[in-house]
């Protein structure tokens, strides 16, 4: 029987980590909810963010957490041509075409990472990644707390953007009836491009945080993607605040699962939970995601 300190530390760490997970899923969630696109390259965008944070540190010597805005802009900018040259021409061709194109982008990126940065695993080495923080009986890495704070702030900001601003209105309208939106004066292409870039920028930030907290490599994208999908589905699809809740729930339950069943079961618990939620959640919850 593990002692109370370990249990509470684990749970707190899980919750905090869940916040970071939510951030990694945020970009996926926006793009899915607004553009109806399952961005299969999302995990690789996160990896781009991690590499960007790493090289930013190497070349400037500035802490990547301070450089987060730069990383976000950089990854967001990278996404612009992906949207305008690859996705925009497929508009109106159904979800699969864009989804497969993003899958192709994902395998190209993964290959490019190996060619450019070798297959080594790396991490953004900062003190705060390893320094433990102790509050009474509870101990957890400092990076978790920093990441959690950044993540919650960013998610709330995005939520505000989507639900309360004129841009958010345009974005939601374009998602359901692009033609009607255009006739009302919405520049649908621009809105979608900005949304896609926003999603990528969030992934950039999330990737840097992941890179600081854990090791990563060229092929980490797959695992990132799956975790993000679980968060998105758990939290209610395409729902920004839901993503935060989903992330925290996943983080906490994974930690509990890992503690009680063994570390190998962490992810398994998450996925099982996900399917159970789907099966037993009352219809009303999903109605939002469907529309």
């Amino acid at each position: 029987m593990p002692d109370i300190g370990i249990i509470s530390s684990t749970i707190v760490a899980g919750v905090l980590l869940g916040g970071i997970l939510a951030l990694t899923a945020l970009g996926l969630s926006i793009v899915l909810g607004v553009m109806r696109l399952v961005n299969l390259a999302h995990g690789d965008f996160l990896v781009v963010g991690a590499y960007a944070g790493l090289f930013f540190l190497q070349f400037t010597g500035i802490d990547p957490l301070i450089g987060l805005p730069v990383v976000a802009v950089f990854v967001g900018m990278l996404a612009l041509p992906v949207y305008s040259f690859l996705l925009a021409p497929l508009a109106g061709r159904g979800a699969e075409a864009q989804m497969m194109t993003m899958f192709a982008v994902s395998i190209i990126l993964e290959n490019a990472f190996v060619l450019a940065f070798s297959a080594d695993t790396r991490s953004i080495a900062r003190d705060y990644a390893t320094v433990p923080l102790t509050l009474g009986p509870i101990t957890f890495p400092l990076i978790y707390l920093i990441g959690f704070a950044i993540s919650v702030t960013l998610i709330l900001a995005v939520h505000w953007l989507v639900s309360a601003t004129a841009f958010g209105r345009d974005l939601r309208a374009s998602a359901v009836d692009a033609q009607a939106a255009a006739t009302l004066g919405v520049d649908v292409k621009r809105v979608q491009m900005l949304t896609f870039a926003l999603g990528a920028a969030c992934a950039g930030v999330g990737g840097t945080l992941m890179g600081a907290a854990f090791q990563f490599g060229p092929s980490s994208g797959g695992a990132y993607l799956l975790n993000s999908l679980a968060v998105v589905v758990l939290g209610g699809l395409g729902n920004v605040i839901g993503t935060l809740i989903g992330g925290i729930a996943l983080g906490a339950l994974q930690s509990i699962g890992g503690l009680t069943l063994g570390d190998g079961y962490r992810d398994l618990v998450g996925m099982a939970l996900f399917l159970l939620v789907l099966a037993f959640r009352p219809d009303g919850f999903l109605a939002k995601g469907r529309t």
């Binding site: 899915l32 399952v38 799956l226 992810d267 099982a272 996900f274 789907l278 999903l286």
Partner: peptide, 30 residues
């Protein structure tokens, strides 16, 4: 698994099936 998956329509179904595969893989690993 259909009672769970068929609650999802369209793309959400797609995401659900992806998660199912991941679940089974993790199960087999563990």
């Amino acid at each position: 698994v259909s009672p769970a998956l068929f609650r999802l329509r369209g793309l959400y179904f797609t995401v659900g099936t992806l998660a199912l595969a991941e679940l089974l893989r993790l199960l087999m690993v563990n």
